[in-house]
């Protein structure tokens, strides 16, 4: 396993260097990520902003090894996870993912959705897994819905269940892929409140989002992506209030015009 380049005073939870990803198309291949560099420290909340198609989701999918990268490297706690000799299942066990469309398992109850990975992947006995799951569901006010099926939940309830499902295996890193984009406006708040709570608990989070207000108040670092390039990154008050890059300014102006900031 190759070591990280250079000497660093500390080791980030996630380190991405020169990440390239292309998708095959009829005309050949389209680059989606053109060399991304990113560091995420422990307990940090990093938000990825940018227009649809800028590569936010692809970056998250590459980090969780749901996509094979075409160049560059990704380290999780110092381990190069893009090495093909690495056990991808073992890597994914250390990373939690929440998708835009929840992706709950429709044939399993809320409780079974949450306990599936602890029981089957981590070998936690059923009683213990269910007790832990109920505790988590209690905390988000969904304990009464534990026996319900995903299609009986509201969007907000479903997404909160998906977040709890990802947290149930105590991941090292949580990836949130536009978790509020599929929700009705009045349901966005309850999901963001849960993300805020999880962040306050010390979880390291990378979050692709269109919620600029949330990025501004909850993020430690905001990254602006455009056309597969990480154009600008820094603290929210800098990137969102006083962006250095002309394109970032254009993007934010559009967001403001759309009434999203």
């Amino acid at each position: 396993m190759s070591e990280q380049p250079g000497e660093f005073a500390h080791q980030p939870v996630l380190r991405v260097r020169n990440l390239v990803k292309t998708y095959p198309t009829a005309q050949g291949s389209t680059p989606v990520l053109r060399g991304i560099d990113l560091d995420v420290d422990e307990h940090q909340v990093v938000t990825l902003i940018g227009a649809s198609g800028s590569g936010k989701s692809t970056l998250l999918r590459c980090v969780d090894l749901l996509e094979q990268v075409d160049d560059g490297q990704v380290w999780l706690d110092g381990q190069d996870i893009t090495d093909p000799r690495v056990d991808a299942d073992a890597v994914r066990r250390r990373i939690g993912v929440v998708f835009q469309a929840y992706n709950l398992f429709p044939h399993l109850s809320v409780l079974d959705n949450v306990t599936l990975a602890p029981r089957r992947v981590h070998g936690v006995p059923r009683e213990q897994a269910e007790a832990q799951a109920m505790e988590l569901l209690e905390r988000i006010g969904l304990a009464a819905r534990a026996r319900a099926y995903p299609d009986q939940l509201s969007g907000g309830q479903a997404q909160r269940t998906a977040i709890v499902r990802a947290l149930a295996v105590q991941p090292r890193l949580l990836l949130l892929d536009e978790v509020t984009s599929a929700l009705d406006p009045e349901l966005v708040g309850e999901v963001l409140a849960l993300v805020r709570e999880v962040a306050a608990g010390g979880m390291t989070i990378v979050m692709a989002t269109h919620e600029m207000g949330f990025a501004r108040s909850a993020a430690d670092v905001v990254c602006f992506l455009e056309g597969g390039v990480l154009l600008e990154q820094g603290p929210p008050e800098q990137v969102l209030v006083d962006p250095q890059h002309e394109r970032t300014r254009t993007f934010l102006r559009r967001v403001v015009e759309a009434g999203r900031l």
Partner: peptide, 13 residues
């Protein structure tokens, strides 16, 4: 396929 992705993301083989 998103169901498969969700399961693999949880670490299932």
């Amino acid at each position: 396929p998103s169901q498969r992705a969700a399961a693999r993301a949880l670490g299932l083989t």
